[in-house]
């Protein structure tokens, strides 16, 4: 954790100058909630993380100079603590997903086309790779080497469950969407389309709305 967070501190400060800090915090909170509720690992938002880290470090530097018991400093400190909480919770939930689905996360990263943005930040990628190697070594040392020779290999990709994309999620619509196809649960029912009005809330399978979550048109809640 410390590594992941420390890695972002020396970032280029020219990016994202169009966003106000308040909007930035809003974006971080959206990313946090989406990551919390989505069954799969979402695209990394390292620019947001970097910018927020920068803001926090800047503020904390300023706070170092303030006197103890100063009301203004206390207010600032409370705010930075709240933001830091969201930030660590966001990064932590990503790491949890990486630990849970590491072979598939790495598989996805490998099959990613040239030029497509990566789902993992460099730090997360290193973590996933290390986690994979460690799990493999552990299995080998503890159990596999005592097995008969024909049973000594294990395919982690097959033995670790995949994220269940069919799981249900709650969402709030941010941009109006038309004709979302809802797949039927049983043979007797037919598929039908629904419209998402702006501001409405729905319960639906994640698979149906995954592209909308990625584009930011809906917010998971």
């Amino acid at each position: 954790m410390a590594d992941t967070m420390g890695g972002f501190s020396d970032s280029e400060d020219e990016s994202q100058e169009l966003m106000t800090p308040a909007q930035l915090i809003g974006k971080l909170e959206e990313a946090w909630l989406n990551e919390k509720f989505a069954p799969e690992l979402l695209e990394n938002k390292s620019e947001i993380v970097e910018c927020v880290m920068e803001q926090l470090n800047h503020m904390e530097e300023n706070l170092q100079r303030s006197k103890k018991g100063d009301l203004r400093a206390t207010i600032h400190r409370m705010e930075t603590e709240r933001i830091r909480y969201v930030l660590s919770s966001y990064l932590r939930s990503r790491l949890q997903k990486i630990e849970k689905y590491f072979p598939h996360v790495l598989e996805k990263e490998k099959s990613r086309a040239e030029g497509e943005p990566s789902y993992l930040s460099p730090e997360e990628y290193a973590f996933a790779k290390e986690y994979y190697a460690n799990t493999e070594t552990f299995l080998k040392n503890v159990a596999l080497k005592s097995m008969p020779p024909n049973l000594q290999t294990v395919d982690l990709g097959k033995s670790v469950p995949k994220p269940n994309l069919d799981s249900f999620v709650f969402l709030r619509v941010k941009e109006r969407q038309e004709n979302i196809l809802v797949e039927p649960e049983t043979d007797e029912q037919r598929e039908y389309a629904v419209d998402f009005e702006e501001g409405s809330q729905h319960l639906i399978r994640y698979r149906t709305v995954a592209p909308l979550v990625a584009s930011g048109a809906v917010q998971l809640i």
Partner: peptide
């Protein structure tokens, strides 16, 4: 059903049944 509209429900209400229900 595979889709439900939940207008006017608050976050706390959704979360009361949320994880268990999904």
């Amino acid at each position: 059903e595979v889709h439900a509209k939940l207008d006017n429900l608050t976050l706390m209400e959704i979360n009361t049944i949320g994880t268990f229900f999904t």
